[in-house]
Amino acid sequence: MDGLQAYGAGKAGGAFDPLTFFRQPQTVLRIFCWLFSIVVLGCIANEGYVNRPETVEEYCIFNQNQNACNYAVAVGMLCFLCSAGFLALDVYFPQISGVKDRKKAVMADIGVSALWSLVWFVGFCFLANQWQVSKPEDNPLNEGADAARATIVFCFFSVFTWALQCLLAVHKFKLGADIAIFNQDYVDPEQLEPTEAPPTY
């Protein structure tokens, strides 16, 4: 019966089962996306800025480019909120009774996941480039180097977690779109071809 689900959900309603929910691949990936955004945000917030030896002014460890640190902080924060929001939507999703509303939720998941995958890829390329061209004399004590590398690595991991999330959402969309039984448009049984049977509910 798992195949007969409108856009990845069974009959609307029912009790929430946390064990089943947290075993779903989509939920596991969503949690990884959420955790990776926390790691990126935490690395930049804690060790992404270093004081100059001669002054108290702070600068970004990524080639002294404030835009690099600002990008990582903004993406980490927004991705954290987005992941939490979609995790809440996943909890609420089986309660949605309208097929069209489910379809909109799945399409939003596809679009947002694809967008975040692209944003993380751009962030990975940008931060890796800025770290590569950073001058050793700008940071003689090599402060925050581990945090910078961790930020780059988790940006890279985030590209794949969000891309997999997008693929799972596409699979859910195809599953729901192929099921004629959940079509909300009324079809007069007399207008059906002799070989066609009316949908059973």
Results as ranks from 00 to 15, higher is better:
residue 126 F to M: 10
residue 37 S to E: 03
residue 189 P to W: 05
residue 159 V to C: 09
residue 70 N to Q: 15
residue 150 A to C: 14
residue 89 L to H: 07
residue 167 L to A: 14
residue 190 E to C: 05
residue 198 P to G: 02
residue 4 L to D: 10
residue 16 F to I: 09
residue 190 E to F: 09
residue 60 C to G: 03
residue 40 V to R: 02
residue 130 Q to P: 02
residue 142 N to R: 15
residue 139 N to G: 05
residue 54 E to R: 13
residue 122 V to Y: 07
residue 73 V to L: 15
residue 38 I to V: 15
residue 50 V to Y: 03
residue 180 A to I: 06
residue 126 F to N: 03
residue 125 C to D: 07
residue 64 Q to L: 14
residue 71 Y to Q: 06
residue 44 I to Y: 00
residue 163 A to Y: 14
residue 12 A to D: 05
residue 78 L to E: 05
residue 27 T to K: 05
residue 106 V to G: 01
residue 41 L to I: 07
residue 90 D to I: 07
residue 39 V to L: 07
residue 163 A to K: 09
residue 41 L to D: 01
residue 52 R to W: 12
residue 194 P to W: 06
residue 84 A to R: 01
residue 139 N to T: 12
residue 88 A to G: 09
residue 7 Y to C: 00
residue 122 V to I: 15
residue 175 L to E: 08
residue 88 A to R: 10
residue 85 G to S: 08
residue 153 V to R: 09
residue 51 N to Y: 11
residue 183 N to I: 04
residue 105 A to V: 14
residue 134 S to Y: 06
residue 113 S to M: 05
residue 45 A to P: 04
residue 72 A to K: 03
residue 96 I to G: 02
residue 46 N to Q: 14
residue 65 N to P: 05
residue 180 A to E: 11
residue 41 L to F: 10
residue 27 T to A: 12
residue 104 K to Q: 09
residue 71 Y to V: 03
residue 114 A to R: 03
residue 193 E to G: 05
residue 176 G to H: 06
residue 44 I to N: 02
residue 142 N to S: 13
residue 146 D to R: 15
residue 29 L to S: 04
residue 105 A to L: 06
residue 75 V to S: 03
